[in-house]
């Protein structure tokens, strides 16, 4: 038995583990996109108090927020095909990734909906009124005034959610998907060097999280009008210069 800890294996495993990175990234990206779209929808029906949809949204979000994601994943992975077979659809050949997209996407949606709701609500109401009195359509008001501000407000929480989603995707291996962790697990089992393999995976996650965090922070800085430096100080007088003579 040569089952001692062999640090050089960490580096030797890295390329192999890295080969599964696209799966992890795809999982994170697709789930985030689903999360944003569905989350925005949930935020919308909750803010507009759309009957029935609103109640469904409330139950859905508290269910998702109140149960472990692993259980949600099993529910979707085992439950959905069962449900589909009841209504006569055979889901045997569906790529397991699809179940993961659904699970993680809906999970993200529940959390993001709250973030989106809070961000939209925090844009001062008077700006909406200013836009409306100026004759903006509702669409113009949302796209020119409300969304750009809400996005900046939501950005830090959004970044946190995406980075924690990245970590959560590591549960994918439990249903046999070869993401970074799944790959590490397989390598470990095959070589009996489990610890080295997992350390390889860990290094990838650490670097990835770091890059994501930096990127988000950069985007935040770039897009935040409130934190931009002052323009070059004006040289004009600050006192009003009225063109026409006053007669009053």
């Amino acid at each position: 038995m040569t089952n001692y800890f062999q640090p050089h294996l960490i580096w030797e495993f890295l390329p192999d583990v890295l080969s599964a990175l696209p799966t992890t990234l795809l999982l994170t990206l697709v789930s985030t996109i689903i999360g944003v779209i569905v989350g925005a929808g949930i935020a919308y029906v909750r803010m507009e108090n759309t009957p029935i949809f609103k109640q469904i949204a409330v139950v859905f979000t508290s269910f998702v927020r109140g149960t472990p994601i692993l259980i949600q994943m099993f529910l979707v992975y085992y439950g959905l095909p069962m449900f589909l077979s009841y209504i006569g659809i055979n889901a045997d050949s569906v790529n397991p990734l699809i179940y993961l997209f659904i699970t993680y996407g809906l999970n993200m949606a529940a959390f993001l909906s709250e973030i989106i709701r809070a961000a939209l609500a925090s844009v001062p109401k008077t700006q909406k009124e200013a836009a409306m009195t100026a004759g903006y359509t509702k669409q113009q008001m949302y796209f020119k005034i409300i969304f750009p501000q809400a996005i900046i407000i939501a950005m830090p929480s959004f970044a946190t959610m995406v980075i924690s989603l990245l970590q959560d995707t590591s549960l994918a291996f439990t249903i046999g998907v070869l993401d970074v962790v799944g790959k590490a697990k397989a390598l470990g089992t095959a070589t009996f060097h489990t610890v080295e393999a997992y350390i390889s995976a860990m290094i990838i996650f650490v670097i990835l999280s770091f890059i994501l965090e930096r990127t988000f922070r950069w985007v935040e800085k770039r897009s935040n009008y409130a934190s931009r430096p002052m323009p070059i100080m004006a040289t004009n007088p600050v006192i009003p210069v009225i063109e026409k003579p006053e007669t009053v």
Binding site: P124, T126, Q127, E129, A130, A131, K144, I145, P148, Q149, I152, Y225, A226
Partner: peptide
């Protein structure tokens, strides 16, 4: 408006 209500963005 009393509180200006400028578009902050």
């Amino acid at each position: 408006f009393q509180n200006y209500a400028l578009f902050l963005n």
